[in-house]
Design a protein around this nucleic acid. Structure first.
Length: 645
RNA sequence: GCCAGCGUAGCUCAGCAGGUAGAGCGGCUGAUUUGUAAUCAGCGGGUCAGGGGUUCGAAUCCCUUCGCUGGCUCCA
């Protein structure tokens, strides 16, 4: 008689034979929906798992995050299977599920083309259609090595030798076999809705000294609807791409002759940037900051002391020689702010100091990483340094956190993801600054986050060597996260430059220095804003806030007078005097995403009014000019994100 | 930097078995004096990214430089 075990599953407790497969139990549970996977004692496994002891089983349905990951992992196997079928002799690398999809790396002489992708997709559909069972097997390491070697999969052999213990787990479907920890879906037929997206290069084991493999990216979902929704999101992102909208709306451009990664701000883009900067300055002054201006270049000695020439030189532009001295373009602002600090003796009574600068820095970025405004070589950081005593640190951290969150909210970003990066307890030697400093610094960050009740993710070991930090990522209109704010302790610079203040005791003490970038880089933030707003900037930022459209040329004088009046009231306004029909002018204003459109004809001239049209909302009828100005000014003052009349 | 793809008028693109460039939109000019998303007509506009090569002949084939795109890598 076989041994019995107790399985708790779907609110039943079943006594079953030891070794039974979970899938064999499912029929008697009379489930309404079909699970795809299960969690057995906290481990995600396929439904074919053999149950050999008492266990808590949670069935996983297609909606769960874990199930989606497994689906995509199985989809990557399906793709590798298809590739090996179509292109014998190809070697496979690794193929995990990643955010939004999956990839698999292949080693093959000939590059994959887009036509190949279509063929691979068709092959995948065919294999999925055969509904092959996906079977997990455990075999001795030596056997796995032998079998993969026989198949000519030397990359896999390398992986098995590195990663497998005594035994290797492999998953097989039909003729395809892969060394893989799993889990996987029960059969290929469950992978129904997928799409291959792109091919790119990727180094074997992520090391650029290794050979480069071809990586195919794809995505998969449990339903057509979910797949279509995701593809639509990609399409929407393409439409909003700031690299497309920016030149289209005449906001900025790049020029080969100037150089890549160097932004040219056109008048309209510059108006938006100026509006952002103006607001930024006002908020900083109101928030207890002082504003600095520092040079773009500095002597080599400065960068030696700061340590940049030691560990950051590869990212700096080559030095220029001036009067026999080497000068470098600045990649960071901190050394300059520290020089301001050191320009005189500082007392504890002077602290805290909060110094901010819109500091333009230049960093050499490898050509392949440049990306529109999001990754450039010259950019303006909205930098600040807070220098304070140990007693002040908690208040200062709370203050800078509140300040940052509040300014992000001014642009409509209220759904943020916050990350706290702290030391790696297993690796204490790679950090500078003593233990007491770190403890106090980390505690102040935690305290600030908890005082405000913010949800945050604690990233163990993610702190940089010079101090712990809080990063804030904003979520845009398409749900994408962008890191903007970083609040970092810096125990390195303060030591290197021997920063000090005189305490109450008359002795020298080392201050805390906190480095903060809020919007991050203005270029990058601007790029994100273009995509977030889809080019339709809210009234307070719009480069042209109102356009006046005369219907016939006898209304031109009235239109120009109106523009003067709007400008006198502080609005960025223009008139369109072209000899076109009003429908054409309206079209131009709408595609130009101008928030307020004022149409003036005989009626309006007679009544001293204008006919208002709001971008995207259409005709709102006649308005009194004074009332219009009041309303528009109020919307601008409130930095309203929408125009509701 | 690496792998792959791409670079034709301001923009979107056609032309590519090699035979000295074309459309739409935008622009300009003229006519139209116009009421809430495209009035009509005419005109201009390109060293086919730059350089080199093959060829009688190159936008088209080859090499190379630059730039862009998707990734890798990097972002103490």
């Amino acid at each position: 008689m076989s041994e019995r075990i107790i399985i708790h599953v779907a609110s039943s407790a079943l006594a079953v034979d030891k070794g039974i497969r979970l899938s064999a139990l499912l029929p008697q549970l009379k489930l309404e929906a079909k699970p795809v996977l299960a969690e057995v004692d906290g481990r995600v496994v396929g439904l074919d798992v053999a149950l050999d002891k008492d266990a808590e089983v949670i069935l996983l349905y297609p909606e769960s995050e874990a199930a989606l990951d497994v689906l995509r992992h199985s989809a990557s196997h399906l793709m590798a299977h298809a590739v090996l079928d179509l292109f014998p002799g190809t070697q496979v690398g690794v193929g995990p599920a990643v955010e939004n999809g999956f990839y698999y790396d292949f080693l093959r002489e000939t590059p994959f083309t887009t036509e190949d992708l279509a063929a691979i997709e068709a092959k995948m559909a065919e294999i999925a259609g055969r509904d092959l069972p996906i079977e997990r097997r455990v075999m001795p390491k030596a056997e796995a090595v032998r079998r993969f070697r026989e198949m000519g999969q030397t990359l896999k052999v390398e992986l098995i030798e590195e990663k497998a213990g005594e035994e290797a787990t492999v998953y097989g479907q039909g003729a395809f076999m892969d060394f893989c920890r799993g889990p996987h879906l029960a059969s290929t037929g469950l992978v129904k809705h997928f799409k291959l997206l792109s091919v790119s290069g990727a180094y074997w084991k992520g090391d650029e000294r290794n050979q480069q493999l071809q990586r195919i990216y794809g995505t998969a979902f449990f339903s057509t609807e979910a797949l279509d929704a995701y593809l639509k999101l990609l399409e929407e992102a393409r439409k909003r791409d700031h690299r497309k909208l920016g030149p289209e709306l005449d906001l900025f451009s790049f020029s080969d002759d100037v150089g890549s990664g160097l932004t040219l701000w056109h008048p309209k883009g510059a108006r938006i940037r100026a509006a952002i900067e103006q607001h930024w300055r006002e908020r900083h002054w109101a928030g207890g900051y002082d504003i600095l201006f520092t040079p773009h270049i500095g002597r080599a000695r400065l960068w030696q002391v700061s340590g940049h020439l030691g560990f950051y030189k590869d990212s700096m532009y080559a030095p220029m020689e001036i009067d026999g001295q080497e000068y470098y373009l600045k990649p960071m602002n901190c050394p300059f702010h520290i020089q301001v600090y050191k320009s005189r003796m500082r007392s504890y009574r002077d602290l805290p100091l909060r110094w901010a600068e819109l500091g333009t820095v230049y960093r050499y970025e490898r050509s392949g990483v440049l990306h529109g405004l999001l990754r450039v070589r010259g950019f303006t950081q909205d930098d600040a340094h807070i220098i304070c005593t140990p007693d002040q640190i908690e208040d200062e951290i709370l203050r800078v956190l509140d300040f940052s969150v509040s300014i992000l909210a001014d642009f409509g970003f209220t759904d943020n993801k916050i990350e706290l990066s702290v030391r790696d307890p297993k690796n204490p030697d790679k950090y500078c600054g003593d233990d007491g400093l770190w403890c106090r610094a980390e505690a102040s960050l935690v305290k600030a986050l908890e005082t405000r009740g913010y949800r945050y993710e604690r990233m163990e070991g993610e702190a940089v060597f010079y101090g712990p930090k809080i990063d804030i990522k904003i979520k845009d209109a398409l749900g994408r996260l962008w890191q903007c704010t970083t609040i970092q302790f810096d125990f390195n610079m303060s030591e290197r430059f021997d920063m000090a203040y005189i305490g109450e005791d008359g002795k020298e003490h080392r201050p805390y220095m906190v480095h903060r970038a809020l919007l991050g880089s203005l270029e990058r933030f601007f790029g994100v804003l273009v995509e977030h707003y889809n080019g339709a900037f809210p009234l307070w930022l719009a480069p042209v806030q109102a356009v006046v459209l005369p219907i016939a040329d006898r209304h031109d004088a009235y239109a120009l007078g109106l523009v003067d009046r709007l400008r006198a009231a502080g609005l960025r306004a223009e008139a369109d005097l072209s000899r076109e029909k009003v429908g054409y002018k309206i079209r131009g204003a709408e595609t130009g995403k101008i928030p307020l459109i004022l149409v003036v004809g005989d009626k309006e001239v007679r009544d001293g009014t204008a006919s208002l049209r709001i971008h995207g909302l259409g005709d709102k009828g006649p308005v009194e000019i004074a009332a219009f100005l009041d309303k528009a000014q109020a919307l601008i003052r409130q930095r309203s994100l929408t125009v509701i009349w």
